[in-house]
Amino acid sequence: MTEVPGFPTSSASSPYTDLDRPPLRQSALRRALLGAGELWREIEVVDALESTNTELARRAHAGAPEGSVLVAEHQTAGRGRLNRSFQTPPRAALTFSVLVRPGPHPTSYGWLPLLMGSAAVAALDRVAGVRARLKWPNDVLLDERKLAGILSEAVTETGGSVAIVVGMGLNVSQTAEELPSAAATSLAHAEAGCLDRDPLLRAVLRGFAERYGQWQRAGGDAEACGLAAEYRQQCATIGRDVHVHLPDQSLRTGVATDIDAEGRLVLQSHDAHGAGGQIPLTAGDVVHVRPDERTG
Rank of each mutant, 00 (worst) to 15 (best):
M1Q: 07
T2C: 00
T2A: 14
F7M: 00
P8R: 09
A12L: 11
S13N: 03
S14E: 10
S14K: 03
D18W: 05
R21M: 04
P23L: 11
P23W: 04
L24Y: 03
Q26Y: 09
A32N: 04
A32W: 04
L33V: 09
I43N: 00
E44G: 01
D47K: 00
S51P: 08
S51M: 10
T52I: 10
N53G: 10
N53E: 08
L56I: 11
A57H: 05
R59M: 12
H61P: 01
G63E: 10
P65F: 13
S68H: 11
S68Q: 11
V71E: 03
A72P: 00
H74D: 01
H74I: 05
H74T: 02
T76A: 10
T76L: 15
G78E: 09
R79F: 11
R81A: 14
R84A: 10
S85K: 11
T88K: 01
T88P: 00
P90G: 01
A92R: 01
V98N: 01
V98D: 03
L99A: 10
R101V: 15
P102S: 11
T107D: 15
T107A: 12
S108N: 12
G110H: 06
L112Y: 10
P113C: 09
P113N: 04
L115D: 03
M116R: 01
S118E: 02
A119T: 05
A119E: 03
L124A: 01
L124N: 02
G129S: 06
G129Q: 04
V130N: 02
V130L: 02
V130W: 04
R131E: 15
A132Y: 04
R133Q: 15
L134S: 00
K135L: 03
D139V: 04
R145Q: 15
I150S: 02
L151F: 13
A154Y: 02
V155I: 13
E157K: 08
V162E: 13
V165P: 02
M168A: 14
G169E: 07
L170C: 05
E177V: 14
E177N: 08
E177L: 13
L179G: 04
S181I: 11
A184V: 05
A188I: 02
A190N: 02
G193I: 01
G193S: 12
L195A: 05
L201N: 04
L201C: 03
R206V: 10
G207W: 08
A209P: 07
Y212N: 06
Q214S: 14
Q216E: 14
Q216G: 09
Q216A: 13
A218P: 02
D221N: 15
A222D: 01
A224S: 15
C225V: 08
L227P: 01
L227V: 05
A228L: 10
A229M: 01
E230Y: 03
Y231D: 02
R232N: 01
C235E: 09
G239T: 06
V242P: 00
V242S: 03
L246F: 09
P247D: 07
T253E: 12
T253I: 13
T253V: 12
D258S: 11
D260F: 11
G263M: 08
L267S: 04
Q268M: 10
S269R: 05
H270L: 10
A272I: 14
H273E: 15
G274A: 09
A275G: 04
G276T: 09
Q278S: 15
Q278T: 13
T282S: 11
V289E: 09
R290Y: 14
D292H: 15
E293R: 07
T295Y: 07
